[in-house]
Computed example of a mutant assay.
Amino acid sequence: MKKLQWKHIRWTVLVLLLTSVCIFRFVSGAGEFYARFIYPTISCFLSRLAAIVPFSLCEILVVVTIVGLMLYPIVAFRRKQRWKSIVRNEVEILLWIYVWFYWGWGMNYFRDTFFKRAEVVPCSYEEKRFKQFLSAYTDSLNAAFVQEIYISQSALERTVKQMYAEVPEKFGLTQPKDFQHPKYSFCNRLYSGVGVLGYMGPFFDESHVNHELLPVQLPFTYAHELAHLLGVSSEAEANFWAYQVCIHTTDSNIRYSGYFGLLPYVIVNTRSLLSESEFTGWFSTIRPEIIQQLYDKQAYWDIRYNDLLGKLQDLVYNWYLKSNQISSGQKNYAQVIGMVLSLPESWW
């Protein structure tokens, strides 16, 4: 009798939590309420728990769940369990994981857009405005150039967190905590093989950075992943905050990483918006040393990239983003330029 009562309670709670995910997904403003008033508490608890150990709890959970789901039917059959009971139990486990994903972090996908929180209208393309940005950005990039970047991990974290703490409240970012540190992955070689420089672990609110990152990439990537931990779901917005946080620091290493980190997205936008001759003319104004760094970075990751795994990862991640209201999929990364252009230069 007690077993039946517990089962009934468990499924009732599960259904209520699943219903709440639907509410936060489809009811206007609910996702923003979660991000501002619920997520900060959940994030603090989960990331504090994760901080107890130096390794990734998120990866352990995923591996244990996959192995458990594979082994459970074998054990259950040996114990004479019915296949319907086995399927029902496995479905229940997957549903609890689904709920954990969204309540732990994933409902940040349903929050108000960056533009609504910034109280600005997304800018439409204007050639004059874009070229002004391009000129100012290129001048700053060239002036910020650093040949050899070195900054300790502790100094990087301290500086970036201090900058995030200054972000205006209207943007709705969670305040970073001293105990939140980026984790390295057990599967780092696999991530390098598919071109992943870092990722957000939603089950224990852990940010992860690829430990093969080049020094010039580390500050920008760390700031990007920290933005996700602070409640940002959009890849474009995470790039926006990584760029803004890095270029507003007084540390020359972090500042240059910010400009350099934005460069690939500037190139993508410039190539699509300007003529070939205009693009070539602009590209030639970038310092040769920076262009060489760009080529060296590409060569560095090309050696580690696995084409088959990379295409599979692109396909899966593209589907994942679109299923969570990022309609542009992986193209969302490059949309950071529209965010930069939508705010006045003095907004910070």
Results as ranks from 00 to 15, higher is better:
Met1Ala: 13
His8Pro: 00
Ile9Phe: 12
Trp11Gln: 10
Leu16His: 05
Leu18Arg: 00
Ile23Leu: 14
Phe24Thr: 06
Arg25Asn: 13
Val27Ala: 03
Ala35Leu: 07
Arg36Ala: 07
Arg36Leu: 14
Ile38Glu: 04
Tyr39His: 10
Ala50Leu: 04
Ile52Tyr: 13
Pro54Gln: 03
Cys58His: 11
Glu59Gly: 15
Val62Met: 07
Val63Tyr: 09
Val63Leu: 10
Val63Lys: 01
Val64Glu: 06
Val64Ser: 13
Ile66Leu: 09
Val67Met: 15
Gly68Arg: 10
Tyr72His: 02
Val75Arg: 15
Ala76Glu: 02
Ser85Val: 06
Ile97Leu: 11
Tyr98Met: 04
Val99Arg: 00
Tyr102Arg: 06
Thr113Ile: 09
Phe115Lys: 12
Ala118Arg: 04
Ala118Glu: 05
Val120Gly: 10
Tyr125Phe: 12
Glu127Trp: 07
Lys128Arg: 10
Lys128His: 02
Ala136Phe: 03
Asp139Asn: 09
Phe145Lys: 05
Glu148His: 14
Ile149Met: 14
Ile151Phe: 13
Val160Thr: 15
Lys170Val: 08
Gly172Asp: 03
Thr174Ala: 09
Thr174Gln: 13
Asp178Met: 05
Arg189Ser: 13
Tyr199Gln: 12
Ser207Gly: 12
Ser207His: 07
Asn210Leu: 15
Val216Tyr: 02
Val216Ile: 11
Ala223Arg: 07
Leu226Met: 12
Ala227Thr: 02
Glu235Leu: 05
Ala236Pro: 00
Phe240Thr: 04
Phe240Gly: 05
Ile247Thr: 10
Thr250Trp: 11
Asp251Thr: 02
Ser252Asp: 13
Asn253Ala: 14
Ser257Gly: 12
Tyr259Ala: 15
Phe260Ser: 07
Tyr265His: 10
Val266Ser: 05
Glu278Asn: 09
Phe279Gln: 01
Ser284Pro: 00
Gln292Leu: 14
Lys297Asn: 13
Tyr300Ile: 12
Trp301Cys: 12
Ile303Phe: 12
Arg304Ile: 13
Arg304Gly: 10
Asn306Val: 01
Asp307Met: 00
Leu309Trp: 09
Gly310His: 03
Gln313Leu: 00
Gly329Arg: 00
Gln335Asp: 08
Leu343Met: 14
Glu345Pro: 09
Trp348Phe: 13
